[in-house]
Design a protein around this nucleic acid. Structure first.
Lengths: 213, 213
DNA sequence: TTTTTTATTAATCATTTGTTTAGTTCATAT
DNA sequence: ATATGAACTAAACAAATGATTAATAAAAAA
C-alpha cells in the first residue's frame, strides 16, 4: 500500500485500501460539517465504522489526516476552477457563463466547501502556497482577455484583481449566507438552490454590465 | 450586579463588573480568532488574567458565554447595517456609497467578524432568528427605493434579494478571501486594506451599472 | 462592629480526547 | 504447510478540558 505524499503532484492514481477510503470519506464529511477542532477522532471512527486505532495506523495523527484531506480538497477545487479560466477557445463572455454554471453546480453539490476552505485557510494560509494553481489565476487567459478588452476600449479599466474578486464574490458569497437568506426569505433548501440556479444566467450579464463602457 | 439576559433588548446600559468585561473581551477576541471549539476556557482565563473559576461564576458555562458574545456581536453588527438602509433622507445611490464606506471601514476595524458570524451561524442558525433587525432588511427603504426605480423604468427588474445579495457579496466576500488575495498578489495587510479602501468608490459605481438600464 | 453577601482562589473531579500498546486474525509468498 | 508481514481489535494511557467545591478575602448591609 502506497503512503500518500503531500509533495506528489498526482493524487488520483494512488492505491488506497478500503478502510483508508472509508476513514477519509467520513473525516472529510465531518471536517466540512463541524470544522477541525469540533471533530473528534472517535467521531471519525464511528462514522466510518472502523476501529479508532486504524486512524493513527493509516494517517499517524488527526492533524495529518486533516492536512491530507485539506490538500486534496483544495487541489480538486482549484483544478476545476482553473479549467475554465484557461480555455483558449472561449471568449470572455463565454467564460463568464461557463464559470457561473460550473461553480454554482459545484457548490450546490457540495455546499459546505467554500466556508470550510476559507475558514480553515484563515488559520493556516501556508497550505495554499503549496497549490501550484493558485498564482495561475491572475495569469490566466480569462484575465488576459479582460485586459485586451480594456486596451480595445470596450471595457472599463480597473485592476484585474478587482475584476476576478467580483466574479467570485457574486458566485460564492451567497452560498456562505445561505442560512441567512433562507431565513429572511423563508426558503427551503430546494428554493434556495433554485435561486442560485437563477443566478447562473444573471451573473454573466451583471458582470458584463459592470465592466462594459 | 445585573445578570445579562438574552431576551432583553437594550444591552448597552447594563452594569458589568470589571472582571466580567475582561472575560468577555478576551473570550470575544479568542472566539473570533480560533472559533468556539478551538478556544478553551483556560485560554480565556489566561488571556483575561482571571481565575478559571470566574468564567463559570459569571457565565455558568463556556457555551453560555459564547452565546452572549454571539448575540451582542450580531446585534451590534446588524444595528450598524440597518442604520444606512432605512435613512429616509438619502437616495439609493447615496445609500450605496454610504454602505460601501461604512461596512468596509467596519470590517477593516474588525476583519475576523464576517467569517466568524457566517461560520458559527452555520452551526446554529437559530441565534439569527432572535435578531429583530434581520427580516427588516428586505422591507427597508433601500429595497423600496430600488423597486421604485424599477417601476419608473430606470433600473432593470430583478428579485430584490438578488440585489441585496450582490451588494453584500462585493463588499464582504473579499475580506473573507484576504489570505488568498494577499498571497497571490503579494500584498501586506496595509496594501490589502488600501485595496479595500479603493473599493469604497468602485462598488457603488459597479452596482449602479449592474442595475441601470 | 458585626453580619451577610459578593468576589476570588487553589485544588480537585469527571469526562473527553488523541494516541499507543500488546495481542490477534488474515492474506500472501515461499 | 508454514512463515512473515500487513490489517485489525480491545484496552489502556496521559494529557487536556469543562466544571465544581471548599475555603478565604473583600465589600456591603445591618
Amino acid at each position: 500500500m502506497i503512503k500518500f505524499n503531500l509533495c506528489s503532484n498526482n493524487i488520483v492514481d494512488i492505491n488506497y485500501s478500503n478502510t483508508e477510503i472509508k476513514i477519509k470519506d467520513a473525516a472529510k464529511s465531518l471536517f466540512l460539517k463541524k470544522g477541525y477542532s469540533a471533530t473528534t477522532t472517535r467521531d471519525i471512527a464511528r462514522e466510518s465504522d472502523i476501529n479508532l486505532a486504524m486512524l493513527n495506523y493509516y494517517f499517524r495523527s488527526k492533524r495529518r489526516l486533516f492536512e491530507i484531506i485539506m490538500f486534496e480538497t483544495l487541489y480538486e477545487f482549484l483544478s476545476k476552477m482553473v479549467e475554465v479560466y484557461n480555455d483558449e477557445k472561449t471568449s470572455l463572455e463565454q467564460k463568464l457563463k461557463l464559470c457561473s454554471e460550473k461553480y454554482i453546480d459545484m457548490i450546490i453539490a457540495d455546499p459546505l466547501l467554500p466556508t470550510f476552505v476559507l475558514n480553515e485557510l484563515k488559520n493556516n494560509p501556508t497550505s495554499f502556497l503549496k497549490m501550484p494553481t493558485t498564482k495561475m489565476i491572475m495569469k490566466s487567459n480569462f484575465v488576459a482577455q479582460y485586459q485586451e478588452g480594456v486596451k480595445k476600449g470596450i471595457y472599463r479599466k480597473v485592476d484585474p484583481i478587482h475584476f476576478v474578486t467580483n466574479v467570485l464574490s457574486v458566485i460564492v458569497f451567497p452560498f456562505m449566507c445561505s442560512p441567512i437568506i433562507m431565513k429572511i426569505e423563508n426558503l427551503s433548501k430546494k428554493d434556495f438552490n433554485m435561486m442560485m440556479t437563477e443566478r447562473k444566467k444573471l451573473i454573466p450579464a451583471w458582470i458584463i454590465q459592470m465592466i462594459k463602457k
